[in-house]
Deep mutational scan, measured.
Amino acid sequence: MEVRTIKVFTTVDNINLHTQVVDMSMTYGQQFGPTYLDGADVTKIKPHNSHEGKTFYVLPNDDTLRVEAFEYYHTTDPSFLGRYMSALNHTKKWKYPQVNGLTSIKWADNNCYLATALLTLQQIELKFNPPALQDAYYRARAGEAANFCALILAYCNKTVGELGDVRETMSYLFQHANLDSCKRVLNVVCKTCGQQQTTLKGVEAVMYMGTLSYEQFKKGVQIPCTCGKQATKYLVQQESPFVMMSAPPAQYELKHGTFTCASEYTGNYQCGHYKHITSKETLYCIDGALLTKSSEYKGPITDVFYKENSYTTTIK
């Protein structure tokens, strides 16, 4: 009895394709271990004539594949690729409408935090270190965002349907971005203890939790000093293409032309909904596939993004 075979390709990165001759009487799992086709788990399936010449994702289970996976995804987590594939199996079914010149995501599976993050990423200057993220990001900007969303979920250790947080998501993504040249110098002034300067680099240099107003941050924000008295913390120097200011959701007025974009969060910790506000020729609110415009805006804002380049204080 002759062994019926077909020729397929296996890959971990969709760049390096490895030619395989597979036995049609055995499952993919018996031949390769966990195997995925377009995100779908085909591990328990036997090869079919229609699979001839198709590319299958496999887990990096030998040295060659491990090197290829690390170079593309910059992670050695053995569960990463499987999590990416199972997320992709959902995100490829989502709709990605162009809204006001940006790629958004039609609401499904509690994905409003991903839509808000995706919209924000198209408006701030950011370059990702893992080629996987950078490639998928370019495709997302062009309207094909399924891979990018699935990668975000995998890097953030999230599953489809789980509630997510924009600030946490951005923080994970910033860790995989090139923020080497970003720098922030802060000064804390206390009447009792004097003053202390701190220099922050990388992710810490672009994120701040405690106030939404970048102007206020430049002037000074009140913080408790270690001595128990009130101290003032203010920005001395900022070198970065953008800054992200966050605070627990509270009524906040966004003035046209003073910011790049913002995240609105309605609801409580267990259950809520994100919308995205962007400042173009007027203010726009993007909620999944829905767009509304207004000249002014007041609502429960939790993150505001500002364009920056270089700032030095005039406070002496």
Rank of each mutant, 00 (worst) to 15 (best):
V3K: 13
T5R: 13
K7I: 08
T11L: 05
T11W: 06
V12S: 07
N14M: 13
I15T: 12
T19H: 12
M24N: 11
Y28M: 06
Y28S: 06
G29A: 07
T35H: 00
L37Y: 12
A40Q: 14
A40K: 13
D41I: 11
V42A: 11
P47T: 04
H48E: 14
N49P: 14
S50I: 13
S50H: 09
H51P: 05
E52Y: 11
T55F: 06
V58D: 00
P60C: 07
N61P: 06
D62N: 14
D62C: 15
L65T: 14
H74V: 04
M85E: 01
M85F: 04
A87Y: 05
K92S: 10
W94Y: 04
Y96M: 03
Y96I: 02
N100Y: 08
S104M: 06
K106I: 09
A108M: 07
D109V: 04
N111R: 03
A115G: 06
A115Y: 02
A115D: 06
A117G: 05
A117V: 12
L118Q: 01
T120F: 05
L121S: 07
E125P: 11
L126G: 02
L126T: 05
L126A: 05
P130M: 03
A142Y: 11
N147R: 10
N147Y: 09
C149E: 05
A150R: 03
L151W: 03
I152T: 10
N157C: 07
E162W: 05
G164K: 04
R167D: 01
N178K: 09
D180Y: 10
S181A: 15
C182R: 04
K183I: 09
R184F: 04
V185G: 00
V189Y: 11
V189D: 14
C190V: 01
C190Y: 02
T192Q: 14
Q197V: 12
T199N: 07
A205L: 01
M207H: 06
Y208K: 00
M209N: 13
L212P: 04
S213I: 02
Y214W: 09
K218C: 07
V221K: 05
Q222W: 06
P224G: 08
T232F: 10
V236G: 00
E239R: 12
S240P: 03
P241S: 10
M244N: 00
P248W: 10
Y252A: 11
K255G: 07
G257L: 05
A262F: 00
S263Y: 02
Y265V: 01
Y265Q: 00
N268W: 08
H276Q: 03
T282H: 12
Y284H: 10
D287C: 00
D287L: 00
A289E: 12
L291R: 08
S294D: 07
E296M: 07
E296G: 10
Y297Q: 00
Y297N: 03
G299M: 02
D303Y: 02
F305M: 05
Y306L: 03
S310I: 13
Y311M: 11
